Amino acid sequence: MNVNVNDYVQAIKTRAVELHGTTVSVELSGGKTLVGTLAYAIATDAGGYQRYPDVCTVTVSTKAQTVRIDRIDAIGQG
């Protein structure tokens, strides 16, 4: 099965935008799962272009965990 990595990463970013501020379950490529509140928002640069950050933050029991988007296998409501 051929998967375009850029399309997959963009799909994860889009899903992260949808779930920003909610409780999520994030499955990481190493097999670990984080359950907590997701922080991920699109930024607008000086030229007015929207930029998707390459990392998100999952707060688990008051401890913020920074996660690279390309290391996420799946993300869903937790």
Rank of each mutant, 00 (worst) to 15 (best):
A43L: 07
G36A: 05
A74L: 00
M1I: 12
Y49C: 01
A74T: 12
A39N: 14
T57Y: 09
G76Q: 10
R51C: 10
T62Q: 14
R68G: 06
A16C: 15
V17D: 04
G47Q: 08
T62F: 12
E18A: 14
V55E: 15
E27H: 06
A74M: 09
V24F: 05
A41K: 15
V67H: 04
T22V: 06
G21F: 13
Q10V: 02
N6W: 03
H20N: 15
A64C: 04
G76V: 01
Q50F: 07
T14H: 02
H20Y: 04
V24S: 03
R51N: 14
L38A: 08
G36W: 07
T57G: 04
R15N: 03
Q50W: 00
E27V: 01
D7C: 00
I12P: 00
A46Y: 13
A16M: 15
L19G: 12
H20L: 03
D7A: 10
V67F: 07
V5M: 10
I42T: 15
L28C: 11
G47R: 08
V26Q: 01
L34E: 02
T33V: 15
V24P: 03
N2P: 13
V5W: 06
A46V: 15
G36M: 03
R71Y: 03
I12M: 13
T57C: 03
Q50Y: 07
V67D: 05
Y40W: 12
T22H: 09
T33F: 06
N6G: 02
L38P: 11
A64D: 15
L19F: 11
E18Y: 11
H20I: 03
T14P: 02
I75K: 07
D70I: 10
R51K: 14
T23S: 05
N4K: 07
T37V: 15
T66P: 01
